[in-house]
Every structure is written in C-alpha cells, then in structure tokens.
C-alpha cells in the first residue's frame, strides 16, 4: 500500500479525527451514546453512508454541474441514509434498535462529517481513495462514540451492552451521566487526553 493511501486511512482515526480535531458530527454523538449498542449501530451506519456516498460522488465528480453541487450531494447522501434506515427496519435483529435510533439515523443527512468529507476529499480525488477516506472518518467517529458510550452506559446504567456489570456490586446508576451535558464533558476530557499525547494539536 503506498504511503498516501495509508495516510488517508490512518489520519482520521487519531490525528485528523472528525469529532475531536475537525469538530464535526457533534450533535449525534451526544444523543446516541447512552448505550453501547446504540453507538455501535450509529457508527456502522455513518461508516456505510460516508463510505458509499463518497464512492458514488467521487465517481460522478467530473460530471456534477457546479451550480447544483450541494443539491446533488444532498440527494445522494439522503438516498444512502434512507436505504440504511430501510434495511435496518427489515431485519428482526435490528428492527428494535432502528426504532430507537430512527430520528438520529435521519439526522445523518445533516451530519457535518458526511458533507464535510465529500467537499474536502471525495470531490477532488479518485473513487477508491475517497471511499477509504469516508470509511476511515466513519471509523474515527465511531471510535469516539464507543468511548463516550462506554462511560455513559457503565456509569449511567451500570451495564455494558445491556449486561449488568456495576449493578452486580450494588452500584446505583448515576442519572446525571445519562443526560447529554455529561457527554460534552466527556468529550472535553477525551480531547484533553488526546492533546496531552499529541502536543502539536494544542492551541496556542
């Protein structure tokens, strides 16, 4: 794998993480991180939508009329989001979780990560690297989501993926953790840790 491709894939995971560095996709990360299961489904949905939308739009990039750029992007992304939602509704295993996340899956259309990556990368690069960039950003986003959800589910409900963990030792779930403001505070701490490790990300 040439160095450029490797950079494309690894950058969004840490150094160019969409949430903690690019500040994109914040709204949904607050809402769906109450449970690990929800965070996982959301992350996988964003990976699928960003990856495939990037692939499609990159393939079309030389044909898109400049004045209709935003509309074409929105239409393709909307199509992907609706497809993901429809597919999740059809399988028994995912039906219940889709009901829970339906509002937020719909909001992926306005998730800045998708549009942001399409504008910044897919419209100027070849299809395969664009798809990989989309997927990698989705993974970077998902990683942060899972970290936040881990703490929120553990401290807020005493469970992990629905299985009682802290509840077994008599822990009383902390309601404040379930509320969205706490997710913001957690994100602040994650950014703190990341920048302590990567000093060049620190602001002057």
């Amino acid at each position: 794998m040439n160095a450029n491709l490797k950079e494309t894939i690894l950058n969004p995971i840490f150094k160019g993480n969409p949430i903690t560095v690019l500040v994109l996709g914040i709204c949904s990360s607050l809402a769906v991180t109450v449970t690990l299961k929800g965070a996982l489904v959301m992350a996988l949905s964003v990976i699928a939508v960003t990856g495939i939308s990037s692939l499609i739009l990159s393939t079309l990039r030389n044909t898109i009329p400049s004045r209709a750029r935003i509309i074409v992007q929105l239409v393709v992304v909307a199509m992907m989001v609706i497809l993901v939602d429809q597919i999740l509704k059809s399988f028994e295993a995912t039906y219940a979780i889709d009901k829970q996340l339906s509002v937020y899956i719909g909001l992926i259309i306005t998730n800045c990560i998708v549009m942001g990556r399409i504008e910044a990368f897919a419209l100027g690069n070849k299809p395969i690297p664009s798809m990989l960039d989309g997927i990698a950003n989705g993974v970077g986003y998902g990683m942060i989501l899972l970290i936040v959800a881990f703490f929120r589910e553990l401290l807020g409900s005493g469970t992990l993926f629905g299985f009682d963990v802290l509840n077994r030792i008599g822990y009383v779930p902390n309601n404040l953790v379930i509320l969205p403001p706490f997710a913001l505070i957690l994100l602040g701490c994650i950014v703190w840790v990341q920048r302590a490790i990567q000093k060049d990300l620190q602001e002057k």
Partner: peptide, 8 residues
C-alpha cells in the same frame, strides 16, 4: 492547561 486549551 495547554492540552485543555481551546476545544477541550
């Protein structure tokens, strides 16, 4: 603290 400045 430096690592917390700005976004954090």
């Amino acid at each position: 603290p430096a690592a917390l400045k700005g976004l954090g």
